[in-house]
Amino acid sequence: MAPTPTDCASSAASTNGSSSYDIFLSFRGEDIRNNFISFLHKALKDAGLNVFFDSENLWTGEAIGPTLQRAIEGSKISIPIFSSGYADSKWCLWELAQIVQCHRTNNQLVLPIFFHVDPSHVRNQTGSFEKIFHEHEKEFKPDIIKSWKDALGVVGNLKGDVLDETK
């Protein structure tokens, strides 16, 4: 089963309006759409960046997968924002696997943000990132699960910003 577009919202910021982006954001919309991402989106727009934002730039009936694939591949930097429900979304995991592929093949810079999530939970698929994989394993082939876990491990091992309740 393919992930559904509403599982994970994504956006990308462009400085030139073409299919090449400066920044690709991957986030679980259900978790952070009305707080952190709203502020980040506004800051990017205020900085003069053209932001590809799912609720503004995707048209009804448009094939989302290929659009997001082009945005990821055409980006210089990807910023996955890990929240407690990020791994619940098959769509977010698909995006992350694509981001890691671009990181490996095109040296794309990946700058993770851990939003109320311990980076070790991402890296090792523990905490909120553990239980959901038992469900994913019932639905997806082992090679897909492996690519998602590998991607979480790679990005979880990168230095990123940790935002938690105490900061």
Score class of each variant (00 low, 15 high):
residue 167 K to W: 13
residue 68 L to S: 01
residue 65 G to N: 13
residue 78 S to H: 07
residue 162 V to K: 08
residue 105 T to F: 12
residue 64 I to Y: 09
residue 163 L to P: 07
residue 15 T to F: 04
residue 78 S to M: 11
residue 111 L to C: 12
residue 11 S to T: 11
residue 46 D to P: 09
residue 101 Q to N: 15
residue 4 T to M: 14
residue 112 P to F: 06
residue 44 L to A: 06
residue 6 T to C: 15
residue 41 H to L: 06
residue 119 P to A: 06
residue 7 D to C: 09
residue 8 C to Q: 15
residue 59 W to G: 09
residue 137 E to R: 14
residue 131 K to W: 08
residue 150 D to V: 06
residue 94 W to N: 08
residue 78 S to F: 04
residue 114 F to S: 01
residue 142 P to W: 05
residue 127 G to I: 09
residue 96 L to K: 10
residue 106 N to W: 05
residue 85 G to T: 08
residue 56 E to A: 08
residue 60 T to Q: 13
residue 68 L to M: 07
residue 74 G to W: 06
residue 63 A to K: 13
residue 112 P to L: 12
residue 146 K to F: 00
residue 108 Q to H: 08
residue 126 T to D: 04
residue 167 K to T: 12
residue 139 E to T: 14
residue 41 H to C: 10
residue 115 F to Q: 07
residue 138 K to S: 13
residue 102 C to L: 03
residue 87 A to K: 02
residue 137 E to Y: 03
residue 160 G to S: 05
residue 50 N to Y: 07
residue 97 A to P: 02
residue 52 F to R: 00
residue 149 K to I: 01
residue 164 D to F: 09
residue 136 H to Q: 08
residue 140 F to C: 14
residue 44 L to G: 03
residue 102 C to I: 12
residue 84 S to T: 13
residue 164 D to A: 06
residue 86 Y to E: 03
residue 147 S to Y: 00
residue 5 P to E: 10
residue 24 F to K: 03
residue 100 V to D: 00
residue 12 A to D: 13
residue 115 F to N: 02
residue 108 Q to S: 04
residue 158 L to S: 05
residue 111 L to T: 05
residue 97 A to R: 00
residue 78 S to P: 04
residue 49 L to I: 01
residue 131 K to H: 12
residue 114 F to K: 07
residue 164 D to L: 11
residue 100 V to H: 01
residue 141 K to W: 05
residue 116 H to N: 11
residue 12 A to V: 10
residue 159 K to H: 09
residue 40 L to E: 02
residue 77 I to L: 10
residue 95 E to C: 04
residue 70 R to L: 15
residue 125 Q to C: 03
residue 163 L to D: 04
residue 131 K to S: 10
residue 136 H to W: 02
residue 120 S to E: 08
residue 4 T to V: 15
residue 43 A to M: 04
residue 62 E to P: 00
residue 91 W to D: 05
residue 134 H to R: 13
residue 130 E to Y: 15
residue 88 D to K: 07
residue 146 K to M: 01
residue 110 V to T: 03
residue 163 L to M: 13
residue 92 C to K: 07
residue 42 K to H: 11
residue 52 F to P: 01
residue 102 C to W: 02
residue 31 D to K: 12
residue 63 A to E: 14
residue 100 V to Q: 00
residue 131 K to M: 15
residue 144 I to G: 00
residue 145 I to M: 01
residue 103 H to C: 14
residue 135 E to S: 15
residue 109 L to N: 09
residue 87 A to Q: 05
residue 105 T to P: 09
residue 106 N to I: 03
residue 74 G to N: 05
residue 52 F to H: 04
residue 26 S to C: 10
residue 41 H to A: 12
residue 104 R to V: 08
residue 141 K to S: 06
residue 11 S to H: 11
residue 34 N to F: 11
residue 90 K to Q: 15
residue 28 R to I: 15
residue 88 D to P: 08
residue 130 E to Q: 10
residue 145 I to G: 00
residue 70 R to N: 15
residue 112 P to I: 07
residue 58 L to N: 07
residue 159 K to A: 14
residue 88 D to F: 10
residue 154 V to N: 01
